[in-house]
Simulated scan of single mutants.
Amino acid sequence: MKKNSIIAALFVATAGLLLSPLSGANQDRVVLQTDVIETLLVPETADALSWQRVFPEQLSMPRGAVRAGAKGCAIFSFNINSDGEPTNITTEKVVPSFGLRRHAKNYLESWRFEPKSEDGGIEESVLLRLDFCTGGATQEEATAICEYQATLPCSK
């Protein structure tokens, strides 16, 4: 009987440790912020483009990229068709090559554009760089990190 009582007491003590929160656990946890910067390479300015991106309104890291911890840059070429959808998306360069390529391409496929003029839009070719950044305890810090990263070459 004594052996069973000791085992039962150990079980209750262990279960109590597992179920009760540790004091101070996760109180100092820092959640890093993310940001995405879009740099239009061709045409050189957004004014020269006959389309404007309407979805997403603000760029954010794709969920899959955040979960994978992916960060880096990607350069894509694509066309905007007469319906305002990106087509013929081609990955020109991705750094790092693992983890970011699929997430970035899926993200870009979800974009929608509207023509700037009422005449409608014509199919147009675009070369675009996207920088995916993680870092900083505040959104301002993440944006500053991403703005710096966007000035660097998209290479290893």
Score class of each variant (00 low, 15 high):
Arg67His: 04
Ser50Arg: 13
Cys73His: 03
Asn79Pro: 09
Ala70His: 06
Ile75Gln: 08
Ser50Phe: 03
Gly72Leu: 04
Trp51Phe: 02
Arg67Trp: 10
Pro56Met: 13
Pro56Arg: 10
Trp51Lys: 01
Gln58Ser: 15
Ser77His: 02
Ala70Tyr: 12
Phe55Gln: 10
Gly64Phe: 04
Arg53Ile: 00
Ala65Tyr: 07
Gly69Tyr: 07
Phe78Cys: 07
Gln52Arg: 15
Leu59His: 11
Gly72Tyr: 02
Arg63Val: 13
Ile75His: 01
Gln58Pro: 01
Pro62His: 02
Ile75Glu: 04
Phe78Gln: 02
Ser60Gln: 12
Lys71Ile: 03
Asp47His: 13
Ala48Asn: 12
Phe78Tyr: 13
Gln58Ala: 15
Ser77Glu: 04
Gln52Phe: 08
Leu59Ile: 11
Trp51Arg: 00
Ala48Ser: 15
Gly69Gln: 07
Leu59Ala: 15
Gly69Met: 05
Arg63Lys: 14
Trp51Tyr: 02
Ser50Gly: 14
Phe55Ile: 07
Arg67Phe: 10
Ile75Thr: 06
Val66Trp: 12
Pro56Thr: 10
Met61Thr: 11
Gly64Ser: 09
Lys71Met: 08
Lys71Glu: 02
Gly69Trp: 08
Ala65Ile: 00
Gln52Pro: 02
Leu49Ala: 08
Gly64Asp: 04
Val66Leu: 13
Val54Phe: 05
Asp47Leu: 12
Lys71Leu: 07
Phe76Asp: 01
Gly72Asp: 02
Ala70Val: 08
Glu57Arg: 15
Ala70Lys: 05
Ala65Val: 02
Phe55Asn: 08
Phe55Pro: 01
Gly64Trp: 00
Arg63Asp: 15
Pro56Asn: 12
Ala48Leu: 15
Gly72Cys: 06
